[in-house]
Design a protein around this nucleic acid. Structure first.
Lengths: 137, 137
DNA sequence: CGGTATCCGCTAGGATACTG
DNA sequence: CAGTATCCTAGCGGATACCG
């Protein structure tokens, strides 16, 4: 707690849009890490339970090995997921959510639910905006 | 649209995540739109009330006109924010959250709060992982 | 004030091939 | 099975200059 004025960081955003510029920086960092395409999907998929590498690949259609590996490492380095490698043959590696991501998982699920519920509206709006050329001479 | 048959493994996400592989596609789209660096910040800042262009620039340190304008257009086209231009002099343009983003705003605020609360842990974990190369003699 | 347009570096991220 | 390494392109995103 660095703020002596008693202004809770999160609370400060509510009453006043004046988010201290300092906070903005790390919020951006976290958002950038956690908010990218694949991280959220991985967290969401892992929410159901531990999964192996290839299972993750199958669960997340369209992800490349490169991105899967990369994102997993990022999440692992941030302590959001754990990697358990079993030295057996064939080798098995399981990824699971770490305690740290308990709260995040919840938020991600909400976000996904929101996306599910409103993607129609969004698409509609998007189409409407794009359809501005519906007035030929 | 390459995958139409077979793997019911996607159904394995079902219980809690409940993400049919089909949904995954548009979820990715929404996540991609909403999950980029600036969109969330703009939504967060706008949560407090309508703001003008320059105000947004001030509230979000580090954003360029290009990105501000671009992101605002995206959000607007998705119907997440509204743009009100008043033809007066000097010209005034106000951006505000649209009804559609009511729920999103909430989630974003939660995410930011989570980021605020756990960025220390994340940084610690990140540093620890990076410190693996403390090659002692 | 509230943008638009252009140049440009950087890197996210896919495809492919190879390894332990 | 679980990655690593390399190549390569699209577009993100900053800086700058200019317009209504």
């Amino acid at each position: 707690m660095q703020d002596s004025a008693g202004t809770d960081t999160a609370a400060a955003i509510g009453p006043c849009a004046g988010i201290p510029a300092d906070r903005m920086a790390f919020i951006r960092q976290v958002l950038d890490r956690v908010g990218d395409k694949w991280s959220m999907l991985i967290v969401a998929v892992l929410e159901d339970g531990p999964l192996r590498y290839t299972d993750l690949q199958r669960q997340i259609p369209g992800i490349s090995q490169r991105m899967l590996t990369h994102t997993l490492r990022q999440l692992q380095e941030d302590g959001l997921i754990t990697r358990s490698a079993y030295a057996e043959v064939p080798p098995r590696v399981e990824y699971a959510l770490a305690p740290l991501s308990r709260g995040l998982k919840d938020i991600v699920m909400e976000l996904i639910r929101w996306a599910s519920e409103h993607h129609d509206d969004i698409r509609a709006n998007r189409a409407q905006s794009g359809a501005a050329s519906s007035s030929p001479s």
